[in-house]
Amino acid sequence: MSPASVAPAVLEFRERLKERYLRFFRDMGVDLKTGDYPACRPADRKFAGYPYIGSMYGQKGHLKLLVVGLDIGADGLLPGSFESFEQRRRAIERKPVEQHNPHIAGTYFTALKYTGPKYEWETFEDDPRTCQRILKEEAPQGAPGLPPTNPLSRIALTNFYKWVTKGKKTMSGADNRIHFNRELEIKLFQDEVHILKPDVVVFQSTMFESAFKEILGPCAVAYSYVLKHPSIWGHRQPKVIVRPVAQHPPA
């Protein structure tokens, strides 16, 4: 799929988000080309990349789901650059689903649960395998239970923490879960929500449990849920990773 085949609404989302991010870069003093943030000490952080927007996000017939992760983890690009909208989309949507890590594999089944149709989710609701194992075993065979279109194409995914340590190659660690200007960064996140207009927001970590309603603040979101992160060992089955530990409105 080329950028030209991405739904027009998605291109509009990209343009509005890019405009908002560029304003954030100017306010923070982030290099508009490289993403470097020289004001931090030590000066080893950069903006990680634009959010992911699936090519079918906002399509009629599916709820708009915004998934909120913690941080991007690793710096996957060459020095002097950060991930564009299209690079991000290709890295998630165009990648064979059986090759995804536990995080994105779990996000795949979160999309099944929260964007519909219901029968897609019910096929795997009680499957005892991990989300990643299901995709590894079923996708290469073209299993009839998997939906014909990638459910990841129907969602948007952003990270609450926007920074990455330059050159970081491992996904583990919490060193990038930091705000350098909490007020500006929270406002950026809230504006992302305003622009994307999701029907449902899912936070992927129990770290959000006590603050997710405050974080969303004035955003008009019908439903929001806090889930366990899908990469947590021992909690990677479909039914487990979509089970809310907190939600609004309450059940």
Rank of each mutant, 00 (worst) to 15 (best):
S5N: 11
A7N: 13
A7R: 06
A7K: 01
F13E: 08
R14E: 08
L17F: 02
L17P: 01
R23S: 12
R23L: 14
F24V: 08
F24M: 06
F24E: 10
F24C: 06
F25L: 05
R26V: 13
D27F: 15
G35M: 05
D36F: 02
Y37S: 11
Y37D: 08
Y37K: 02
Y37R: 02
P38N: 03
A39V: 11
R41N: 09
R41C: 07
Y52E: 06
S55N: 09
S55L: 10
S55D: 06
M56T: 08
Y57P: 06
L63T: 09
K64I: 08
K64E: 02
L66I: 03
V68T: 08
G69A: 10
L70C: 14
D71E: 15
D71Y: 05
I72S: 07
I72A: 09
G73N: 02
G76P: 04
L78T: 11
P79E: 06
G80H: 08
E83I: 04
S84H: 13
S84N: 13
E86W: 14
E86V: 15
Q87Y: 04
R88Q: 13
R89G: 11
R89D: 10
R89T: 07
E93Y: 04
R94P: 07
E98Q: 12
E98D: 12
Q99K: 14
H100G: 01
N101V: 07
N101T: 08
P102F: 00
P102L: 02
H103S: 06
Y108K: 01
Y108P: 01
A111W: 08
A111T: 06
Y119F: 06
W121I: 15
E125C: 10
D127H: 05
C131Q: 01
I134L: 06
L135F: 03
K136R: 13
G142A: 03
A143Q: 07
G145E: 13
L146C: 10
T149W: 05
L157N: 05
N159A: 04
N159M: 04
Y161R: 08
V164Y: 00
V164I: 04
K169W: 07
S172Y: 02
S172E: 10
G173I: 07
G173P: 03
A174L: 13
A174C: 05
N176Q: 12
N176Y: 01
R177D: 14
R177W: 06
H179V: 05
F180H: 13
F180L: 10
N181K: 11
L184Q: 14
I186Y: 08
L188D: 11
F189V: 01
Q190Y: 03
V193P: 04
K197C: 11
P198D: 01
P198Q: 02
D199L: 04
V201D: 03
V201M: 04
V202A: 15
Q204T: 14
K213Q: 15
E214M: 14
I215S: 01
G217E: 06
G217R: 00
P218S: 15
C219F: 03
C219D: 03
A220D: 10
Y223T: 13
L227N: 05
K228E: 12
K228T: 10
P230E: 00
I232Q: 12
W233A: 11
G234K: 09
Q237C: 07
K239F: 03
K239A: 11
K239N: 10
V240R: 03
A246R: 00
Q247P: 03
H248W: 07
P249R: 03
P249G: 09
P249D: 04
